[in-house]
Write a protein that binds this DNA or RNA. Structure first.
Lengths: 126, 126
DNA sequence: CAGTATCCATAGTGATACTG
DNA sequence: CAGTATCACTATGGATACTG
């Protein structure tokens, strides 16, 4: 007797592994890293760190490792002094760029509207 | 002298309010709640609680309040015994359904592929 | 039924200094 | 340059019981 897994993954199902997948692609920094990597070129650790403003080296490393583990990015090491490491989206990683870009554009495009809603809500003293 | 805000919101900018917007629409439960509300009908608290499997009443309330504050949902109270409260997406809320559906479909559609990547990565003993 | 209240656990950062 | 190591914190989420 094995644990029955639903044939079609369903995000609403508490035990569905798609929840973990969603969690990963929507974590704090992944969408921003994907945004920087979207032109599909190799980007150095340093450049990622600079462009994803506010991320610490520790968290950048952790997030990139998780993305590499999930198969979203490849890590390319060039043995040199000083060392050089580039990251690049895989085909799988590229396939998420459009949904993430849509999300990013929505966030960037509705800032004002949402801030107005918050103001109105807070002024109504709920 | 005022704090200069960029004309175009930019998610990569540490101080850009779009980061908060993105954070809200990608938090743990918002995508699932949006998924249930996507057919744009009024849905009772109870039904949300049942369909978004695993969410506690406290967190469901908190998430719905945050969504209401941002203008994504409306809360409709029907004074009756027992009480009845329905939630429904606003126009703004509806405008996020497509990006979120794309994300959800991606997550559900790539579960197997990603799990295989993780296996391979872990087996390589990084 | 639709929440609140309470208490609690911990994942998820974050700052900073250090190293191969 | 590209990380790791440490330490610490706090927001988020979870369990459960209670209430208008």
């Amino acid at each position: 007797m094995t644990i029955q897994q639903s044939a079609q993954p369903d995000i609403l199902n508490a035990n569905c592994p798609s929840r973990t997948v969603l969690r990963h692609i929507t974590d704090r920094w992944t969408p921003m890293i994907v945004t920087v990597l979207t032109p599909r070129r190799q980007v150095r650790f340093k450049e990622l760190r600079e462009r994803v403003q506010g991320i610490s080296p520790k968290v950048l490393t952790e997030t990139l490792r998780s993305m590499e583990r999930d198969g979203l990015v490849t890590r390319v090491v060039t043995a040199s002094v000083p060392p050089r490491v580039d990251y690049e989206l895989t085909d799988l990683g590229m396939s998420i760029t459009r949904p993430i870009a849509a999300l990013r554009r929505w966030a960037e495009g509705h800032v004002t509207e949402i801030e107005e809603h918050r103001q109105a809500y807070d002024n109504a003293l709920h």
